[in-house]
Design a protein around this nucleic acid. Structure first.
Lengths: 333, 333
DNA sequence: AAAATAAATTAAAACGGTTGCAAAATTTCC
DNA sequence: GGAAATTTTGCAACCGTTTTAATTTATTTT
């Protein structure tokens, strides 16, 4: 009953050659006489033969598939990276298996293992905090791995990021220059080294530079959501801060809208700089000044780097740092 | 040099059983004596054996992988669907290969073919307009396919959607009820049957119902982007419309912000209803009334439907229509 | 306790390709 | 025209599982 699938063997028979020759034709191997190639191609076309990628994968030990571990595709930050990843993957004839982890330590490990079981040729990992266990899995596996928009001290794997520390510093500098004495730092989990180490350090350093004192009371940790921003607004206002650097656009806009709705004038009474320069910053009124990150490129470059690792190409540096910018809009003076 | 991979054969040898028995243990086949099972599991654990999914796929003709064709992951509408798809996929032990098509006819076909070559067990397709060529590929392949948030007359494949026609009708009814005589219809490409057939029909029907006349001058076709909304605002205003149903939130907010910035009072002078109820509708000021669609669920249900098709379960209906709602916020009176 | 039945296990054939090596065919060179 | 060199081709092992049919072992039945 099954519309039986036609195999390389069928093609070989019809074309009066061996499977080996068909395989060579399919793989563009040059050691085939032009006339033979033509004959085989005709049969392939006539039978509408399509090589079974699974069988190929088994025989060649290459699946032309890479695994992508992502906290949440429906989050624009990550989906922008994902888009960059897929575009470059496609360019190099790879497909991506996309797996959401919710940034959950357990899921990250289990998903990593299923990806390895599926024999992906490489892995791109996006996450917040890399646990010791995960790091262990990373080094155990001989499959190349690249971190995209995620950092880890252990430089065993490749990674692509921007200089979060300097970027945050620039943002705080701007706020300090504008005369703010109390600048809040509103970030996601400080467990994420991007926040807890890089950005926080940038914040502290910039304060010091401006002769401002660091107080824990001005540091706010939150989850990434608009609602969280709304909740936070009151507390930030009460802290006496007159400005804030925020690491997430949703949170930033939540704060902005809440303050504005309660009569606070932005930027006159309160200044705000956020970090991802997403569409939200354009839509909000006033528009929100923001650090700009080349998200798509971070993804694209990660995948490019991964292709090099998969090809075992020699390379200078596997830790890439992309340039960032600062877009001054209307939430800063 | 290669940390050589350990195979089912190694486990068999170490455990003094045949590969077949190991295979049964791994697959939870009950026909294994408990003591044997235990012995094998110990060896598996000791050797840290992990079944090669590619070999399994070849032997069993099942890859526990489904292909997902998506116009653009970085678009929140689709990434919401994608998230629902992946969650249910994970629940049923499937992984997804995600491939962006940009809604491009050519890419859709080529991507479909590589997914089939990779022997995915099923496919979820999201797209705007299904060409004859694509439909041909669909029916040629015996791999189950489900359309998510996409429609096609040809009911050969499964699909999950909301009733776009009724939803649009409801939105227009609301605007008509509020006294608007000239209601604009701002949609994406009319080539997409969701717009060109369903929604447009709902729009026309509602107009008729309210004794309003349909004019082409009030129909605006645009691409889905904030910028496009900005451009459109002026034209819409000049059309004499005092209200609009918009099919995309970015476009809607673009229109809203532009009108507001130019002094038009919303909802007093102009009313607006959009269609996806994304975060943008909350962030914009005033907040935008919107049709509500269970995007995550559309994805989730699509995947659930696909699992049934992959299992060859008998079922009544493979065309699922999920409920929608209408959230009245501040862009309508 | 032998015969019949059921349960557990094994051997070996797929699954559909790739690839190293040897053989065959072709071309080159004197 | 024939040996040597080169290009094409085919053979067959291999990739790591699943799965069927056959065999062995254990359990019931009488």
């Amino acid at each position: 009953m099954d519309k039986q699938t036609i195999t390389i063997y069928d093609v070989a028979r019809e074309a009066n050659v061996s499977m080996a020759t068909v395989s060579r034709v399919v793989n563009g191997n040059p050691n085939v006489k032009p006339t033979t190639r033509k004959k085989v191609l005709e049969v392939i076309d006539r039978l509408d033969y399509r090589p079974n990628a699974v069988a190929r994968g088994l025989a060649s030990k290459k699946t032309t598939t890479v695994g992508v571990i992502i906290p949440d595709v429906s989050n624009t930050y990550f989906s922008s990276l994902a888009r960059g990843i897929d575009d470059v993957a496609t360019m190099y004839k790879y497909n991506i298996i996309l797996a959401n982890s919710d940034g959950n330590d357990q899921k990250e490990i289990s998903v990593l293992n299923t990806l390895l079981a599926k024999q992906v040729d490489g892995i791109i990992f996006m996450g917040h905090h890399i646990t010791e266990a995960l790091r262990g899995e990373f080094s155990r596996s001989k499959t190349p791995i690249v971190l995209a928009g995620s950092i880890d001290e252990d430089k065993q794997v490749g990674s692509v990021n921007i200089d979060y520390e300097e970027a945050t510093k620039d943002a705080v500098r701007l706020l300090a220059k504008n005369g703010n004495q109390k600048i809040a730092f509103v970030s996601g989990s400080l467990r994420d080294p991007i926040n807890g180490q890089k950005r926080l350090k940038g914040y502290k350093d910039a304060l010091k530079e401006a002769n401002l004192t660091y107080t824990e009371g001005l540091v706010f940790e939150s989850t990434y959501s608009y609602k969280e921003g709304i909740k936070l607004a009151e507390r930030i206002k009460n802290s006496g801060a007159t400005a804030a650097v925020v690491t997430d656009d949703e949170v930033a806009v939540g704060i902005l809208n809440t303050l504005t709705d309660s009569g606070v004038k932005v930027p006159e009474d309160f200044e705000l700089v956020t970090s991802n320069n997403s569409l939200l910053t354009e839509i909000a009124r006033p528009q929100v000044s923001s650090i700009t990150q080349p998200l798509y490129d971070v993804g694209a470059v990660s995948m490019r780097l991964l292709t090099k690792l998969m090809n075992k190409e020699e390379m200078e540096e596997r830790t890439v740092v992309l340039p960032y910018g600062l877009a001054e809009k209307n939430s800063t003076k």
